[in-house]
Simulated assay, not measured.
Amino acid sequence: MTKTLGIFGAMLLAGCTTQSKYVYIVDFHNACSYSVDIDVNEYSNAKKPLHLVKTLQPGESTEILSYISFSDELENGFPDTYQLQLSANQREIVLDKNNFLSHLKETTIGDPGNTVDIWKISSDQLCP
């Protein structure tokens, strides 16, 4: 009986540890000729800070989303409270999760992988 429970326990643990994890990363590149202020709420579930505030100089890039998820669908891979605010040259864009996802659908995945997807977006909407 103990041997059977031990085998069952080992199978259960093996099943739990083989669940696929997916990584979703979005990099933002400042293509403007002036600085861009970034304010991201719920930026990551694996890195700190969870609230990222940063100023990017022309030509600089940074991650604006970094999530590890058990879901193979990006929509389910990060929280509904995600919000991205971009400010530059007296203009501001605020994207909630749905607007952010819509914007990502217009871009291509930079480095597609089996479980790692990396998007690269830039500041075209903020530049004159």
Rank of each mutant, 00 (worst) to 15 (best):
K120H: 09
L95K: 07
S44I: 07
A46N: 10
D96K: 13
L101H: 00
S44K: 15
P128Y: 15
L74S: 03
T55A: 09
G110V: 05
L56G: 02
T115Q: 14
S87Q: 11
L65H: 04
T17H: 10
A31S: 05
P112I: 00
T108C: 09
C32F: 09
K21I: 12
S102C: 03
L95F: 08
A88F: 09
I7G: 03
L84H: 01
C32Y: 07
K105C: 01
Q83G: 03
D37A: 05
S122E: 04
F70T: 04
A14K: 06
I38P: 04
L104G: 02
Y67W: 13
Y22K: 12
I7W: 15
Y82M: 04
H29L: 14
F70Q: 07
C127E: 08
N41D: 06
L101P: 01
K48W: 11
G15T: 09
S61A: 09
P49H: 03
M1C: 01
G9R: 15
E75Q: 06
M1S: 04
M11G: 04
V94C: 04
Q85V: 01
H29R: 13
S61W: 08
I118K: 12
I68K: 14
F8I: 06
I118M: 13
I7C: 11
Y24T: 00
F8S: 07
M1K: 12
G113D: 10
L126I: 02
D124G: 11
F8M: 11
L12C: 13
K47A: 07
G113F: 06
T4R: 15
L65Y: 08
K97Y: 04
S87A: 05
F8R: 12
P112G: 00
E60N: 09
R91N: 10
L86C: 02
P112C: 02
Q57D: 12
L12P: 12
S44R: 15
V53R: 15
I38M: 10
Y43A: 03
D111Q: 10
F70W: 01
K120I: 06
E63P: 15
K97V: 06
D96R: 13
Y43D: 01
I68H: 12
Q19I: 14
P79E: 07
N99H: 13
L74D: 00
E63T: 14
N98M: 07
N76P: 09
P58W: 14
Y24N: 03
T17I: 13
I64S: 03
S66Q: 12
N114K: 01
H103N: 12
I7R: 15
T4H: 15
S122I: 00
K47C: 02
N98S: 05
G9H: 12
L56D: 06
N41F: 11
S35V: 02
S20W: 09
L74N: 06
Q19W: 12
N99S: 10
V53T: 10
D96T: 02
D39A: 00
P58K: 13
T18Q: 12
D27G: 01
D96I: 08
Y67I: 06
L104M: 05
V26H: 04
E63A: 14
L56P: 08
T17Q: 12
H29V: 08
